[in-house]
Design a protein around this nucleic acid. Structure first.
Lengths: 182, 182
DNA sequence: TCGCACATGTAACGTGTTACATGATTAG
DNA sequence: CTAATCATGTAACACGTTACATGTGCGA
């Protein structure tokens, strides 16, 4: 899944500027699909404009820089929907957190415990964010996708709460670790 | 998480060649952390050797190309463990599948249904793979991580089975879609 | 005999990030 | 007065993929 596709998906729901697209992709409802920077978004939008999949209009603002507002064209909508018919890219999941936990037996107990606690806090924040997103969804499919995410997150949280202790028990006791440091 | 770190993680458990590392990262227990190609692995190993974090020895084989077997050095072990102490990279999750589902209302029912069924099959394959991996794990933390993965996968599967129909109901009926195609 | 598994490596290419350039307004 | 927000865009860089080059033995 590339920045290009995400730009089309966002513009599918309504006009936006490059700046707004980046915000949505970092903080908003799209942050669970991608995390794109200006350096990727602006050239992407320029290319989409060339290909006539979006159009742009400039809007002057007083006190603020001029905005370049992009709109999706009928051809853009068709191209996006067409891409949903084609073979989808595989889901990708990369977790340095799980790699860390895999090596729990080589790491100090206190660190393993701390990281597990931090993760619970992060998951709670994500769950709260899902609640926020659910208030302001615009697609009929949004609520379903958000609840899907919530279900997976909750399962992860429950697993950590139920079995975190087992992992902490595997870790190096802090006493051993202090001894090894000498 | 980069290829470099994964190479060290794999070599932490025992010697391996570049070829084997790629296999592990694509099919094996590491495929849930990364999916690296030769073009990334070989240069990475060469650099690790320069930095004295791994050593290499060449082993001739009759009928097969010579192997270059890499071993982690004490400095390599220390560097890897040190990297686990430092701030971890964030987990990343990208799902074109969820983007597709989000737009269910714009897509034909038959396609949405098909993709949901395919996903169930994929999840079952992954769950079976987890069973296989659980037989041959070498770290004490492996079983925990595998069960964590299994729990999340199972939750996703259950959710699709329980709520898939709701999403299919949102999709365009195939009759409308045929009409729209004219 | 066709293609796959074994095995290493490079070069071209794609895609995205980080840092920079520019500049006004507003909130702390 | 300092930092953040709004706003666009480019250039250097990092990192990774795909395709290619090379070559043997084995199973269908």
């Amino acid at each position: 899944m590339n920045v290009r596709t995400i730009c089309l998906a966002i513009l599918y729901d309504g006009d936006a500027t490059g700046y707004e697209i980046r915000k949505l992709s970092v903080e908003g409802e799209y942050s669970y699909f991608i995390d794109a920077s200006y350096g990727a978004i602006y050239p992407s939008l320029a290319r989409l404009e060339q290909e006539k999949l979006v159009t742009a209009r400039v809007e002057q603002q007083d006190g603020k820089p001029a905005k370049k507002i992009y709109s999706i064209t009928p051809a853009g909508r068709a191209a996006f929907i067409q891409s949903m018919f084609e073979k989808l890219g595989e889901d990708e999941f990369r977790s340095e957190f799980l790699l860390f936990l895999r090596f729990a037996s080589e790491l100090p107990q206190s660190l393993v415990e701390q990281r597990l606690n931090e993760r619970i806090v992060e998951i709670d924040a994500t769950l709260a964010d899902f609640d926020r997103l659910k208030q302001q969804h615009n697609h009929p499919g949004d609520a379903w996708v958000i609840d899907y995410g919530r279900t997976c997150m909750q399962a992860a949280r429950d697993y950590i709460e139920a079995h975190g202790d087992e992992l902490i028990a595997l870790a190096r006791s802090d006493r051993d670790d202090a001894a090894a440091a000498e």
